[in-house]
Design a protein around this nucleic acid. Structure first.
Lengths: 224, 224
DNA sequence: ATATGAAGTAAGTGCTTACTCACTTTTGAA
DNA sequence: TTCAAAAGTGAGTAAGCACTTACTTCATAT
C-alpha cells in the first residue's frame, strides 16, 4: 500500500462511484498537490489520474485539457481556501490595534497572521511561485487582486500615522515593501532553502515580534 | 578572400564550424536562457538545439544527457559569472564603511551592490528560483556556499556593533534575514510580479537608501 | 597530397505525452 | 421494473520526447 494517493485521504471507498462534482474536487485537489510539487510541465495527466485513483480518461471527462484543469485549479484555490480573505479580515486584534493607534500591535498582528498562513499552506506558496516563473496568468491576477490591495491597506495606515506625526516621512509603499519583504522572504527561506532551519530556526511569534520591532523603530519619529 | 574574412569576424555565424569548446559555450549559454525562461522540464533539447543553431545530435555530442547539460550549466554559472564573489569583495566603500563603523554606509553599500547585481542578472535569479522549486541540487549548494556566508559576514558586523553599544540586542541572524528580505523581495517583485512597476517604481539607489535607513533605525540604540 | 580525427548532421529509435473513442456499469426518477 | 443519463474505463492515436546510429564535411599535421 502506497497510502500516498490522494483519494485514500478522502475516506472514500475505491469501488464506490462518486458524483461528478465530488470526483471533480478530488481530481482538483490531487492535481494541486502535484502541480505545486513539480510545476505545470513537470506534472503529467497520467500522474494526476493515478494519484486521484481514476483512469486518465476520467480526468479528461471532467477537464477537457490539462490547461483547463490548471485554470480551474487557480480559480478554486483563489476563491475557496481563504486566500481571497485579506489578512485584516477576521483579524480582530489587527483592527483593534489600528483603531487605537497601537502601531506595534498592527504590525505584529499582521505579521503573525501572514506567517502562520504561509506556513500552513506551503503548496499554495509553491504554486504561486511556479506560476509566476512559468508566467501563468494566476500570478498577475493574484498580485493585482490581492497583493496590491495589501499595499493600499497597510500603506494607508502608514500615511495616516505620518499625518499624526507618529511616523517619519518615508514613501508608504516602500515601508510596506520592506515589511512584506521580511515576512515573505522569511517564509520562502523556510519553504525552499532552509527547510531544516540550519541558518535560522525561530518560531513565527519570534519572527513576527522582531520584524515588527525593526520596522516600527525604523519608521517612528522618536519624540525627544 | 574578403568574404571569408567577414565570416571570421562574426563569432556568432551559425553556419561556420566552431571549435568544440566554443560550440560548447554557445550551447550552454543558449540552454541557460531557455532553462531560466521555462524551467528544466519546460525546455526541450530540440528547442536548445534550434536556438543554438545546431542539430540535436550536436547537443548530445557535447553533453551526453539533458541532466548533464543542466549540471554543467550550474557549474559554469556559479564559477564564471561572478556569483562566487561575495558582495563585500571588490566593494571598497563597503569595507571602508565597516572599518570606520559607518553603519549606514555598510548597509547602503551592501544593498546597492546586491540590487544592481540582481537586476543585471535576471536570468540567474529566475534559474535560482526554478532550481529551488524543482529541488535541483543547485539551490542547496548556492545557499550553503553563498547565502549562508552572507549571514555569517553581515551577522558578525551586527554582533560587533552590538558589543560597541551601537546596536540594540536582536539576534544578528534575524537582522540579516530582515535586511536580505527587503532586498531580495524587492528584486523578486521587479522580476516576477511588478515588471512594469505599477505598484512601486523606484530606483535602486532610492530602494537601497530607504531600506538601509529603515533597518538601521530599527536596530540602533538611540543615545539620549 | 593525403590520412586522421574532430565537427556536425539526417534520419531514425523506443518511449511518453496529451487526448479520444467505443464501450460498460451504476444511479435514480418515473 | 425500466431505462436514459451520468460515471467510468481499456485500448487506443498522433505528436513529441530524450537520445542514437551511421554517415558526411572539413581543418590540420605529416
Amino acid at each position: 500500500m502506497e497510502g500516498k494517493d490522494n483519494h485514500e485521504l478522502f475516506a472514500c471507498d475505491h469501488s464506490a462511484r462518486m458524483t461528478g462534482d465530488r470526483r471533480r474536487e478530488v481530481i482538483l485537489e490531487t492535481a494541486f498537490n502535484l502541480f505545486s510539487k513539480r510545476g505545470f510541465s513537470g506534472t503529467t495527466t497520467k500522474d494526476i489520474a493515478r494519484s486521484a485513483g481514476v483512469s486518465e480518461a476520467t480526468v479528461f471527462k471532467h477537464f477537457s485539457t490539462k490547461d483547463e484543469l490548471y485554470a480551474a485549479l487557480l480559480d478554486v484555490k483563489k476563491c475557496s481556501e481563504g486566500h481571497h480573505r485579506f489578512p485584516w479580515e477576521e483579524n480582530e486584534s489587527l483592527i483593534k490595534a489600528m483603531n487605537s493607534n497601537d502601531d506595534y500591535g498592527v504590525f505584529y498582528s499582521f505579521a503573525i497572521r501572514a506567517l502562520d498562513k504561509q506556513q500552513s499552506d506551503i503548496s499554495f506558496m509553491r504554486m504561486l511561485f511556479f506560476s509566476a516563473l512559468e508566467e501563468h496568468e494566476m500570478a498577475d491576477r493574484f498580485y493585482t487582486e490581492f497583493v496590491a490591495k495589501i499595499y493600499d491597506f497597510l500603506g494607508a495606515y502608514v500615511k495616516k500615522r505620518q499625518k499624526d506625526g507618529a511616523f517619519r516621512k518615508v514613501a508608504p509603499k516602500i515601508v510596506v515593501r520592506a515589511f512584506l519583504g521580511m515576512l515573505i522572504h522569511h517564509s520562502l527561506n523556510n519553504i525552499l532553502w532552509d527547510k531544516n532551519r540550519r541558518v535560522l530556526d525561530i518560531s513565527n511569534e519570534t519572527a513576527a515580534k522582531n520584524f515588527a520591532e525593526i520596522l516600527l523603530r525604523g519608521i517612528t519619529l522618536k519624540a525627544s
